[in-house]
């Protein structure tokens, strides 16, 4: 198979020109988000341009420490983003969530490069960063669902939760049904994706590998492996994040601390 065809400048102009169709549809229907679309397209271009330039630099250098540092920065950004979406205070949960995200990303990505791809250098930029990024992105989505569900449900059901404590439950016993439900909700989208993958849409990684010039069978193998790695990452990150946050989320005598919520 041939390698990926580069997109010429004219081709990129044609790509942006395709935006005229959705913009025309929005104007026709009077949906007043045209300026937001413009900002989003500009942001996307600038952000990807910077990331592309940086990644080119990182790939060329291919230094293990720099690769790890890049992944850690991505995890830090995800950490803050998750807590903002969950409306929880970063100063309370930032550190335990960061550790959980490192575990949820590092374990599957290292397993992937070592035991699935058998790479001689497990911290090779070409594999570590894109695969780590895909796993982290899914951990982010799952953590937002799981952590938010866990704390919001206990906040809503605080009387039931406190009655459970009053009945003699230890903290780990009192949180168990909430943790179970949060975990279930967090991994459900990944399971649903696995159920419909290939039927509803061609997944991004598979498309990328095919565009990269590899046969579809290779693309399928990559996709299966990455889906299992993503599922593993979310299954590690969500319960670890919740369990590691308990000490800061609950008072020593058991009730949920109200000052952990940002609003």
């Amino acid at each position: 198979m041939s390698s990926t065809i580069d997109i010429s400048t004219l081709g990129m102009i044609a790509a942006y020109a395709l935006l005229l169709i959705p913009l025309a549809m929005l104007l026709w229907q009077g949906v007043s988000i045209v300026s937001r679309v413009g900002i989003a397209v500009v942001r996307m271009t600038v952000q990807l341009l910077f990331v592309g330039l940086y990644l080119q630099f990182v790939f060329n250098l291919d230094n293990a420490w720099l690769n790890c540092a890049w992944l850690l920065i991505m995890i830090l950004v995800a950490d803050v983003s998750i807590l903002r979406h969950c409306r929880l205070r970063v100063r309370c949960f930032g550190q335990p969530l960061f550790v959980a995200l490192v575990m949820g990303t590092a374990i599957p990505v290292l397993y992937f490069t070592m035991l699935i791809l058998h790479r001689p250098h497990i911290l090779e930029a070409r594999y570590l960063i894109p695969i780590g990024g895909m796993i982290l992105g899914n951990c982010l989505r799952a953590d937002i669902i799981g952590i938010r569900h866990f704390y919001d449900t206990i906040k809503r059901d605080h009387r039931t939760f406190e009655l459970t404590l009053a009945q003699g439950a230890q903290l780990h016993e009192a949180i168990r049904p909430y943790l179970r439900e949060a975990f279930h909700n967090a991994v459900s989208p990944t399971i649903a994706t696995m159920m419909t993958i290939g039927l509803v849409s061609l997944p991004g990684m598979m498309t990328g590998v095919i565009l990269g010039g590899q046969p579809p069978v290779t693309a399928i193998k990559y996709q299966v492996a990455i889906m299992i790695a993503v599922f593993t990452g979310t299954a590690i990150a969500v319960p670890c994040a919740i369990l590691m946050s308990l000490k800061r989320g609950f008072s020593p005598s058991g009730p949920l601390r109200r000052d952990v919520f940002a609003d």
Binding site: D157, R159, T160, L163, T164, A166, Q167
Partner: peptide
């Protein structure tokens, strides 16, 4: 001790 709340929410 055991406790009965004013409006018990038992789950």
């Amino acid at each position: 001790m055991s406790y009965v709340a004013q409006e018990p929410v038992l789950g």
